[in-house]
Design a protein around this nucleic acid. Structure first.
Length: 199
DNA sequence: GTTGCGATTGCCT
DNA sequence: GGCAATCGCAACT
């Protein structure tokens, strides 16, 4: 197994020439979720290419924000371009990017790229395709936890920058029972790194 | 105060 | 495919 060097964090730099993250995230989560595919996400320099996302709107019965603010979902009602991190099933962590008020994009899978050794150690597996193929897996691999809830995506430890355009696959969201038909799950078409195949 | 249910995962049969 | 782990929160009593 090749030793992949972890790149030192801090991404800034070219952000001046492209739209600011707050502007990019200030819109409809359903439009932003597919647009995030292909972007590079890192936490303390460890991460990869965003391969799968889901959108959750303010008025969406499946969204944590549907019943209004609570201590847990407070970040969803804060400013855009911040993280919303919640505990799933009392065990795992899930990472969202906050969009317009009460809406967010769930990051469901990454193509592992930087700090692969560190991710494998955290996940206790060497299977590349399954390192970040799920919202809980991805948070474990990147070391995301409650301490990242509400943190701004434009600053360390987060690194977030656009990538090349990708072909987008669409499907209903996974694991929900309310509003299950909404086609608001997006992935890089044909990617082996997504949590479940698109079809 | 108690109960039931998840935006999940890994281990088991 | 079934199921346990484990906790925040809503909807009860």
């Amino acid at each position: 197994m090749t030793a992949h060097r972890s790149r030192a964090a801090t991404i800034h730099g070219s952000m001046n020439t492209s739209p600011s993250l707050p502007d990019f995230f200030a819109g409809d989560a359903v439009e932003i979720a597919p647009a995030l595919l292909g972007w590079h996400l890192s936490v303390d320099g460890i991460g990869g290419i965003i391969a799968e996302t889901e959108a959750y709107r303010r008025d969406d019965p499946a969204s944590h924000s549907f019943n209004g603010p609570t201590p847990r979902n407070a970040a969803m009602f804060g400013p855009p371009a911040h993280a919303y991190v919640y505990r799933s099933y009392g065990i795992h962590w899930c990472l969202n990017f906050v969009c317009s008020e009460g809406s967010a994009v769930l990051i469901r899978a990454l193509v592992p790229l930087t700090g692969i050794d560190a991710m494998m150690a955290r996940r206790k597996t060497e299977k590349l395709a399954q390192l970040c193929s799920g919202p809980g897996k991805l948070c474990a691999a990147l070391g995301v936890g409650h301490n990242h809830d509400g943190a701004p995506l434009a600053h360390a430890p987060f690194g977030l920058r656009p990538g090349e355009p990708v072909t987008v696959a669409v499907s209903p969201r996974i694991g929900i029972t309310k509003n299950p038909e909404a086609p608001w799950r997006f992935g890089i078409a044909g990617s082996p790194f997504v949590s479940k195949p698109f079809r």
